Amino acid sequence: MSPQGRFRRGRGSAGRILFFLFLFVLVGCAPEDADSPRGVEADDDVVRLVYVEWDSEIASTHVVKAVIEERLGLECELLPVTLTALWGSLAAGDQDATVAAWLPLQADQQARYGDRVVDLGPHLEGTRIGLAVPAHLPVDSIPELAGVVDRFNGKIIGIEPDAGLMRRTRRALAVYGLDGLRLISGSDSTMTTILEGAMAEDRWIVVTAWTPHWMFRRWDLRYLKDPKGVYGEGGAIHTLVRQGLREDHPRVYDFLSRFRWTVRDMEQVMLWMQEEGTSPEEAARRWIGANETQVDRWLDE
C-alpha cells in the first residue's frame, strides 16, 4: 500500500475515534430523564417562584415564600420577570409556580401557554382595573377627560407596556377618542412615585390603577366611570404551577391549592412594605405571624 493510502486510512480511523468520543460526551451530558418537563435538572429541595414586580405581586409572592420556608422548611427562590416570561417560564418547566396570574386580564398569555401550565384557581377574587384620579377632581368618567386634557398635562401615567391594563388603556384612548392624551409607560414603582408627588402638590393626575393596591388606602382616589366597559367587570388573581409539581413537591402543591386570601389582606402587606425600613420579606413574615390561623388552614393543620 502506498504511503498516501496509509495516510487516508489513518485519517479515517482518527475521524471515527473523534466521532465516538464526541458521542460519549454528548450522551454523558444529556438529562437523565428526557421526558422531564424541566428540561434541565434542578435542585429538588428548592422551590422557585416567578412574579412580575407589581406591588400586589411582590406582596403575595413574599407571603408564599415565607410560608414555604418557615412552615414547610424548604428553600425558596424568587425571580422577577416580564409578564410574557412569567407564563413562558412555567410552561417550559423552568420555574415552579406563580401567584401573579390576573385573569381574564392576561387572556393573551393564557391562550398561548395555558395548555402547558396547571391553573389551581383564584387565590384572590374581586380585582378591578381602570383609570383613577384624586377623589376631589371634578371629573367623573373617562369620556370627560377629553375636555380637561391640559389639566392633566396631556398624560396618563401607566406601568409596564406589556401589561393587560396598558393594553386596555390603549383601547380606551381609541374607543373614547382621547387623541390629546398620551399613555406613559413605566412601572408600578414609577407610577406611584409620580402619583405621590402630584398628591403632595395638589396637581391633577390620572393613572392606570388596579385593586388590590395600597395606593387606595394611602390616598383618597377613585376610579373613573367606564360607560363603554373597556376595562371589564373585574376578575381574580390565579395561582399557576408547572406540570409535574404535584409529584415533585406534593406539600407545596397542596399548600398552593389551598392558598386563598382577600383584597384587604394583600393591601395590608403592601402598606407595611411602604413603611420606611421595611422590606417585603419583613412585611410578609409580619403578616403570617399575625394570621397564624389562616396560614394553618392553607396547610391543613
Score class of each variant (00 low, 15 high):
288 I>W: 02
183 L>E: 07
301 E>Q: 08
118 V>Y: 01
232 G>A: 00
71 R>M: 09
266 M>K: 09
212 P>A: 13
72 L>D: 06
234 G>L: 02
93 G>P: 05
120 L>E: 10
102 W>V: 07
295 V>Y: 00
299 L>H: 01
103 L>V: 15
108 D>R: 03
6 R>D: 11
292 E>Y: 07
194 I>V: 13
248 D>F: 00
185 S>C: 12
179 D>N: 14
286 R>Q: 13
257 S>H: 12
182 R>W: 01
165 L>N: 13
11 R>F: 03
223 Y>G: 04
163 A>K: 03
243 Q>Y: 09
238 H>D: 02
85 A>D: 12
233 E>H: 10
168 R>S: 11
72 L>G: 09
116 R>E: 15
195 L>S: 10
270 M>G: 15
117 V>A: 05
118 V>I: 07
19 F>C: 15
176 Y>I: 05
133 V>N: 08
35 D>G: 13
94 D>E: 14
203 R>G: 04
141 S>G: 14
81 V>Y: 07
246 R>P: 07
143 P>G: 01
27 V>A: 10
240 L>Q: 02
122 P>N: 11
267 E>K: 02
126 G>D: 11
37 P>Q: 00
176 Y>T: 04
21 L>A: 11
292 E>C: 08
102 W>H: 13
182 R>T: 04
45 D>K: 14
5 G>Y: 11
244 G>V: 04
200 A>M: 12
110 Q>D: 13
56 S>D: 11
254 D>E: 14
103 L>K: 12
156 I>P: 10
43 D>R: 06
71 R>S: 09
74 L>S: 06
63 V>H: 11
129 I>C: 01
184 I>G: 02
